[in-house]
């Protein structure tokens, strides 16, 4: 794929892939915007599904591990 808009570095100005206002730049701009919008839409649908899961009871409570035994009432040595 020929993406290079220059023949050499001498006198080069803009030299990014495809070159300004080209079909390639437009194509990738459209793709980038679509990707951007897709992420937003996916976030919305992902949330909708996640909320249904919790209503269906498919997500368990994120309870952190409990200590195996209650901590002692006081333990001054712990500070040492």
């Amino acid at each position: 794929m020929n993406t290079i808009p220059i023949d050499g570095w001498e006198g080069a100005t803009q030299y990014f892939t495809f070159g300004a206002d080209s079909f390639g730049v437009w194509l990738f701009l459209v793709l980038a915007v679509l990707l951007f919008l897709t992420v937003i839409v996916r976030a919305i649908t992902h949330e909708g599904r996640s909320y249904k899961e919790i209503h269906a009871g498919n997500i368990s409570a994120p309870i952190a591990m409990e200590p195996e035994s209650p901590p002692p009432a006081s333990e001054p040595a712990a500070m040492a």
Binding site: H46, S50, E53, H55, I59, P62, E66
Partner: peptide, 25 residues
């Protein structure tokens, strides 16, 4: 806004899902 049940439950576990401190506090 998230539904009330999710708010009670916490957004992390429902929407991400992950826990910041899996070994507890």
């Amino acid at each position: 806004r998230v539904p009330p049940s999710v708010e009670h439950f916490g957004v992390d576990a429902v929407e991400l899902p992950s826990l910041p401190y899996p070994e507890g506090i």
